[in-house]
Design a protein around this nucleic acid. Structure first.
Lengths: 121, 121
DNA sequence: CTAACATATGAATACTTGCTCATATAATAA
DNA sequence: TTATTATATGAGCAAGTATTCATATGTTAG
């Protein structure tokens, strides 16, 4: 434990000439790191990926999404709320049914770009 | 429960004219969904984001990363192993010290693209 | 009004995950 | 050899997460 704190005070390990303060200035800041992680976390679950993948094709209601993914209505609804809180999807109500669609072209781009990368290799 | 299974057999809910089988054909398949989620999961943690953000600037050894992120050596090492297993980072050994660097230009692109999106809004 | 349908949501639970601690491995120095 | 430095790793735990179940809300039909 004491040793660890000592290490923290040192600025380089033996054999490195890297200027850490320069790296620290250039690297992504604390706040951005959390924002990035939060955004990627939304895409880090297969169910959410499938939901986004489906909404990429068409606006769909909860029931249809539940049929498409072969999952319970409640699970779908919970995940849609998650994505809605992050403004990744939006909803449109029409009578009894609620239609969901994508609400963020950024996510759409990232999603499609990454999908292409996975396919072409 | 019985009701749920009934729902699954229906192909549309009232008020929808969406052809679900057509959507299913176009949407991302099961396997791709899991691959996408796995990839994004690697980027869904602030520590891993910071690690990648630092290695985006420079190749760095474990100790320096531990200093930069102000975290214990063990935590850093565990996360580096995680990223290494997914071939996101690679390592180069030089004497006692091990230098890590990015190993996947895809991830790099996605990371930078997303970072830009977050900044410009 | 009541019944049926569509969606939302709180609680419970099984599972996952990120960190710490202690220790192991590996390389170098004395 | 032993001591020191750098990194790796297994176990354990606390916190988080995705699903299910039961139920609530809201909408339309009869």
């Amino acid at each position: 434990m004491e040793k660890q704190i000592m290490d923290m005070c040192d600025n380089t390990c033996d054999g490195t000439e890297t200027d850490l303060s320069t790296v620290k200035q250039q690297m992504v800041d604390e706040h951005s790191a959390y924002e990035l992680a939060e955004l990627f976390k939304a895409l880090s679950d297969p169910t959410r990926v499938k939901l986004i993948g489906a909404l990429l094709v068409n606006e769909l209601c909860v029931h249809d999404l539940s049929v498409l993914l072969e999952m319970g209505q409640s699970a779908i609804s919970h995940q849609l709320r998650y994505l809605r809180n992050l403004r990744i999807v939006k909803r449109r109500k029409s009578g009894k049914t609620v239609y969901y669609s994508l609400d963020d072209s950024h996510i759409e781009q990232i999603f499609v770009l990454t999908l292409q990368h996975l396919k072409h290799e």
